[in-house]
Nucleic acid binder design. Sequence first.
DNA 1: AAACTTGTGACACCTGGTGTCATGAAGTAG
DNA 2: CTACTTCATGACACCAGGTGTCACAAGTTT
Lengths: 193, 193
Amino acid sequence: MPEGLRERTRRAVRAELAAIALDLFAERGFEDTTVEEIARAAGLTKRSFFRYFPAKEDAVFEGIDVTGDQVVRDLLARPADEAPWQSLRAVLSESERQIHASGQAVAGLKLIESTPSLRARVHEKRSRWRQQVSRALRDRPGADLDAFTADLLTNAATAALDTASQAWLRSDGTADRAALLDRAFDLLQPTTA
Amino acid sequence: MPEGLRERTRRAVRAELAAIALDLFAERGFEDTTVEEIARAAGLTKRSFFRYFPAKEDAVFEGIDVTGDQVVRDLLARPADEAPWQSLRAVLSESERQIHASGQAVAGLKLIESTPSLRARVHEKRSRWRQQVSRALRDRPGADLDAFTADLLTNAATAALDTASQAWLRSDGTADRAALLDRAFDLLQPTTA
DNA sequence: AAACTTGTGACACCTGGTGTCATGAAGTAG
DNA sequence: CTACTTCATGACACCAGGTGTCACAAGTTT
């Protein structure tokens, strides 16, 4: 049972809905675009939009969403003897690279940065995966971390991420994202490990 | 012209509105309490509630709000030769202490922690003062910081704050907040300064 | 083809939030 | 004390994001 027509159409509709939404947001701004307009532009009803996305904001994160599960999986795949900080660096560098690769995403990132409710959404998602990541750090074979240190490392990693992101935006997207992230991770390297 | 009756009543109503709101939130939860209910419980209209608070969420932050201005002012008052990281530590320790002092605030903190939309609000406020703080760090007499480093220090400081807060909540509010914060700042001390 | 499941439109409804207007009270002259 | 201005309030209408419900039309299975 490979994949029914239903799931395929569902994903297709979902993707198109997101694309249309992003276009409209870019054109008229996030707040000034109603869900009704998006839905009608896609030939659907408002009600149906909400069957594809739980909220208007979620349409923006279609291609950008870095799930906690993904990060955790990558983290557990790192060599067991690697210092936690280096593992975090490697994993987050990779997921950054991945997001940044899809040209579509860059427009999304700028939109997010300039829209308060979207930034809030980012933080919400992030605080969810911070828990998972912190746990994952402690669950690594041979790891000897207390909860406090694991949280601290995780929070510091997101600080590095944020700093790199801010610098990148300040450069209008011209700076080398990977290099910025590396610099942040270097400077912040905790004294523990 | 010391202070008109108008301003006094306004502040009194505002405070009482916040208190009533906090009670109702504690009782029925934030989402399940409508603005209408709060307003009626205070003998006002929904419309009038919004003349005191721009949004439902803001009623929660009455006593807790650490303004960016406050932090900046404290920061500039630190000795000029103190390392930025130490200044941040001192200022944030103090503001933490201040919030924690008011017994009323603790209920608010727990409510915030358990309500997504409130947590989002916190992050929103924080990202606003991070800009200010980062600027303030660079504006200190004799400071020689590039924007990147200033952002990094600021972000790292909030990481420390978050970590201490998480640990404190994990201990059900029994741990020594100041000690936790100190430990976080020690471990995170950046290699630069 | 019949029976079942799932996506859809239509419609009603709730809640947060804003614009507007009339009214009455607080503050200020004369 | 009276007249004039200013401001907070209630009342009402309105918008947008979300959710519940139901009937119907697809897609799916036997």
